[in-house]
Design a protein around this nucleic acid. Structure first.
Length: 803
DNA sequence: GTTCACTCTCAG
DNA sequence: TGAGAGTGAACG
């Protein structure tokens, strides 16, 4: 008797453990750990992952059910992934099934469909169902619902004429194309040739060619082209048995264009010095973590590329993580031009099918390198030799919802499993990582010079308070306007960066001061010009712009704030001839829009690129000589202890966009707080002094990297209930954690009301707290068994990126 | 997360 | 008494 241990596809606390199923004899030879199976669970048939196979079970035989079917001939999860999931589940306080699900492409995740199954003769049914079931014995429940057939359906159910069944659907489709397989038998081909009448000239011609290519499998289009024949001719020849159609699996190719091949650059002395320890670590199979700190333009990517080259030469595989927004064709082409077909690319811009294909390339070892966003850290290689995380400080490496994993932590776990090094690269490392490097937990590698020896761009700060005093009410200081004008004359390109976070256009009544707010959240609505609507960026609520103030009835409604649209308007007013490209959420919604804008800009089709966060990274165009930051302050005053760090990182990244080739670059930063250290050090482009200064702040307030933090958040429709349970959390944590841990709160969350739920939170600061994870698991248990039914939601976020 | 079974309530 | 709504336990 063979028993499979199965993790079922149900995210709930009481079923977050393996269930035993009997393996039917016919599956015994096929089933393996890591395969997906369909299993009966309660009244339903659902998907599950086999995580173990054993010979006996404690489950009484009358309760044991058999696996209903096997979905994979080869496992979709490696043994490593199953171990990793067990670790992740504790590390992130989440369900094992959710951890397993993030590791596979969404095409392989189950989709369930409710079907109505006919249980009697269709003629016994009443109209209108009779008509439906004359055609089929299984009907889609949703379809019937759409046709308003729920009332007759209910009756039929009661009479047991039909039953309801959930079926597991698979989304992933393997794309196949039709090819032609030419017969291997040359004599036979000759015979067919001779039997043809002389009138069949084209067929004869085709057969002659086929004799040269006996046994080959060729795309029909190629045959038509080479032999000047047509589908009809080919069809006729196939009719004579000289060839046959075969279906062949193909991988969709999401890359539109082919890229040329590029060679390796000779490394600078500095780059060489950085590469050597990484190569050594690979040779010694040492799971070290390196922090590669290199100024913008110092050629970190070239170091990565050569490290990967070494990795491939060792016969191993490499994983490269890049933030989603910098996964542009420009970026991925650097890898493809170096390693060609050996690269798979994974990012959110691909369709489900394309993602599935890229994943299969990895799964079937067709590639040696994966370049991708966060989830690519789970690439199912079995012989990993190197993991690289570029722009290590980026917050997008942390998943915002459960399982709340950090790609860096997963990478380090995997590096220990495979005994291979990890490279964390950044021009502005996170304080956590830099502190670890200082303590020799990570090995620090530094690149101080720009690779082409260009000087760093000159950075200037403009005090906007003085501009206002001078009577300049536009959002462009004289200095910046002057600089823009200069570039336009010289035909050089300009990037304008608008740090829009928490500072988008809102609508205000000038008489009573009311700001239009979201009905569900404590957030002011954002004005969208293109459809004249007010929108909540948190819950998606939308309403038209009111003509009169809903509070006082005044018609003095005004738009405030600085959205990219508004800047664009002013720009065109100020510089009538300038060609402006705007890049923000609105203009990049459509698939491929992002790439197109960058391509256009790169091709010189515009003078000014105006955008938000998303233009801070990866832009590498030689003709950009001016970068303007319209307002540096907005991210500075966010209620988050990392606000200064974020601002510094952002300004440094943006500045790095200027003067990447021969022409020197200039950066102008406009701010209302020119004296702030984050801005001053960004101007000086000095990471170290900023680090020292910021560390002082963190030390004083007991924040990371000195302490770890965890955030427990409670929400409920009722403010008081929410507060009450947040207090319960705090009390519970205080009773179980040591005196070294401090529990702050409960306090209200940054945005108290979100989607009509009131939110409270507790912040836990700790250093070494062996009891922390067990305490959280216990708290989660109390919540899941007791509080959940009262409508409370509780989330625990370890090492949150924002508080 | 769903489902089924059990309890409770209310109308007939 | 039976149907409909509301909770709770169990899922192998």
């Amino acid at each position: 008797m063979k028993i499979a241990e199965v993790i079922v596809d149900v995210s709930a606390y009481p079923v977050d453990r393996p269930f035993d199923y009997l393996i039917p004899d016919e599956m015994e030879e096929l089933i393996e750990c890591g395969c997906r199976v369909k299993v009966p669970f309660g009244a339903r048939n659902i998907l599950g992952f086999v995580v173990g196979i054993k010979n006996d079970t404690d489950v009484p035989p009358d309760k044991l059910k058999p696996v209903s079917s096997l979905l994979d001939i080869e496992p979709v999860l490696t043994k490593e992934m199953m171990e990793l999931a067990k670790w992740m589940k504790n590390e992130t306080i989440s369900y094992e099934i959710d951890c397993l699900q993030v590791m596979i492409p969404s095409a392989l995740r189950a989709k369930y469909e409710k079907m109505v199954v006919l249980e009697t003769d269709a003629e016994n049914l009443e109209e209108p169902l009779r008509t439906v079931f004359r055609r089929t014995t299984k009907a889609n429940y949703k379809e019937l619902e759409k046709q308003n057939l729920l009332i007759p359906l209910k009756k039929a159910l009661k009479e047991k004429w039909v039953s309801i069944e959930t079926v597991v659907k698979q989304k992933g489709t393997i794309k196949e194309i039709r090819k032609v397989k030419i017969s291997e038998d040359k004599d036979f081909l000759q015979k067919v040739y001779e039997n043809l009448s002389n009138r069949a000239k084209k067929q004869k011609q085709l057969l002659l060619w086929m004799q040269q290519h006996a046994g080959e499998i060729i795309e029909p289009e190629v045959i038509y082209r080479k032999t000047d024949s047509s589908p009809q001719v080919l069809q006729a020849v196939i009719g004579h048995g000289a060839a046959e159609f075969v279906m062949e699996e193909v991988y969709r190719n999401p890359f539109k264009k082919d890229v040329g091949k590029t060679d390796f650059f000779t490394l600078t002395e500095e780059q060489e010095k950085a590469l050597q320890p990484i190569v050594d670590a690979m040779d010694n199979h040492s799971p070290e973590t390196f922090l590669l700190h290199g100024v913008t333009g110092s050629g970190k990517t070239e170091v990565y590329l050569q490290a990967i080259q070494h990795c491939i030469q060792q016969g191993k595989e490499a994983i490269v993580l890049v933030p989603e927004i910098s996964l542009t064709p420009q970026m991925t082409n650097r890898f493809r031009s170096r390693f060609g077909e050996l690269v798979a690319v994974m990012h959110s811009g691909l369709s489900i099918g394309e993602k599935f294909d890229e994943w299969r390339k990895v799964h079937h070892r067709k590639v040696k390198v994966v370049v991708g966003a966060r989830s690519a850290v789970f690439a199912p290689f079995e012989n990993v030799g190197l993991i690289i995380i570029d722009e290590e400080h980026e917050t997008s490496y942390k998943q915002e919802d459960s399982p709340r994993y950090h790609a860096r932590d997963v990478a380090i776990w995997r590096s220990k499993y495979h005994r291979c090094p990890v490279i964390l690269g950044s021009a502005t490392p996170s304080l956590e990582s830099y502190a670890r490097a200082r303590k020799n937990v990570y090995k620090l590698l530094t690149l101080k010079e720009r690779a082409l020896k260009q000087s760093l761009p000159s950075v200037e700060i403009v005090d906007m308070r003085k501009e206002l005093k001078k009577g300049n009410r536009t959002m462009f200081s004289e200095k910046l306007a002057e600089a823009i004008r200069g570039r336009l004359e010289k035909n050089e390109q300009i990037v304008l960066f608008l740090n829009r976070r928490g500072y988008s256009s809102f609508v205000l009544c000038r008489d009573c001061g009311t700001v239009m707010q979201c009905e569900n959240c404590d957030i002011s609505l954002t004005y969208h010009r293109y459809n004249e609507k007010l929108k909540c960026h948190y819950c998606g609520y939308e309403q038209p712009v009111p003509a009169i103030c809903p509070l006082c009835g005044s018609d003095h409604i005004r738009y405030f704030g600085t959205g990219t649209q508004k800047v664009e308007e002013e720009l065109t007013k100020l510089f009538p001839g300038a060609r402006v490209l705007r890049m923000d959420v609105d203009t990049t919604k459509r698939k491929g829009a992002h790439e197109r804008i960058l391509e256009d800009f790169g091709a010189g089709k515009a003078d000014i690129l105006l955008g938000t966060q998303m233009i801070a990274k990866g832009l590498d165009f030689p003709n950009i000589t001016l970068v303007g930051v319209l307002s540096a302050d907005t991210s500075l005053h966010l209620p988050d202890f990392r606000a200064a760090e974020r601002t510094f990182q952002l300004l440094t990244q943006v500045s790095g966009r200027a003067g990447r080739a021969e022409k020197p670059g200039e950066v102008i930063i406009q701010t209302y707080s020119p004296e702030h250290y984050a801005i001053q050090f960004a101007k000086a482009q000095q990471y170290e002094p900023f680090y020292e200064r910021e560390m002082l702040m963190r030390h004083e307030a007991d924040y990371p990297p000195y302490y770890y933090i965890a955030l427990v958040q409670v929400s409920h429709e009722d403010l008081l209930v929410s507060a009450e349970y947040a207090k319960k959390c705090a009390d519970y944590l205080r009773s179980r954690l040591s005196f070294n841990a401090s529990i702050i709160g409960p306090t209200t969350a940054g945005i108290v009301r979100l989607q009509n739920r009131y939110r409270y939170q507790c912040l836990i600061k700790y250093k070494i707290e062996p009891n922390l994870i067990p305490t959280f698991l216990q708290l989660m248990k109390i919540y899941r068994t007791d509080w959940m039914k009262k409508g409370i939601t509780l989330t625990i976020d370890l090492n949150p990126t924002m508080i």
